[in-house]
Amino acid sequence: MTQRILDISGLNVRFATEDGEVAAVSDVSLHVNKGECLGIVGESGCGKSQTFMAVMGLLAANGKTTGSARFGGIDLLKADERTLNTVRGNRLAMVFQDPMTSLTPHMRVGRQLTEVLERHRGMDAKAARAEAIAMMARVQIPEPERRFAMHPHELSGGLRQRIVLAMALLCGPELVIADEPTTALDVTVQALILDLMRELKEKHGTSFVLITHDLGVVAGLADRVAVMYAGRVVESAGVREIFAAPRHPYTKGLLACTPRLTDAPTAVLPTIPGQPPDLQKLPPGCSFHPRCAAVFDRCRAERPALAEGGTLNACFLNHTVAA
């Protein structure tokens, strides 16, 4: 029996804005098993980041959530700030896209690391320094003692992202949520960071949520993949299944319009016409229907549920038993 380390159920995230309510995340249920990497794929505004900002209790002030997110016996959505603070940065850590803005610019990186250890693990300064340097070495930062005393601006983007990763790993978290961790990095550096995450998963059993728009990144690391569109999960399956036999037209479209080095180049790239919908003016029925080539009447009137049909997907074409 696999153990679920994070279990999100019926999550809704709504933002109150001057122009009315924005449905950023709607009825999302996801889980992460112990030791696995769950890939979350989607384009800007699909709700992939907000789902996990809600889980971390980091939503903007005008955001409201309903549903539950169970992590080690705690419902993170209902927990108070104090309880959250004992979990976040400790058993549950997050890595963001931009390593420059997620580090404090005026503080030496070493101090930013030891702070975590002193606060969560009650270490004294000396022990914390030794531990922080050991962790810097583990994420393959060359000359960790010298870099310990540097400020973020003195480090390259790749080194900064390794500092952020080291910070996330300091307390031996059970789950690391990585939101576009390699998007700002060059391909060669991206490959190193992904290798590092793979090693942590395989050798130390760390579980990951990998949020990305890059299908290539997911293919190399994730065990299971959930595809999101307009605030909802539209397809979810094992990584090999979803790449070999995607069922939802959006997933198929995303895969088709990504050129890959392993295929011969084509004259024209397949595309998905149109653009993602405005979350305040979602179309009726299936949110993807205005862009879908296989659309039929029912899609315009009724929203398909996420149901079994080859994979777990939200498309009437695949649901054999009529609802």
């Binding site: 390259s156 790749g158 490959a191 290539g216 293919a219 080095l261």
Partner: peptide, 23 residues
């Protein structure tokens, strides 16, 4: 070229990579 992510789990996990040392 060897660092470019390939959207295919089988190839992505099997292919060799030429890692670059240092910064």
């Amino acid at each position: 070229l060897s660092a470019v992510p390939v959207p295919d789990p089988t190839i992505a996990r099997a292919r060799p990579r030429l890692a670059l040392a240092g910064e």
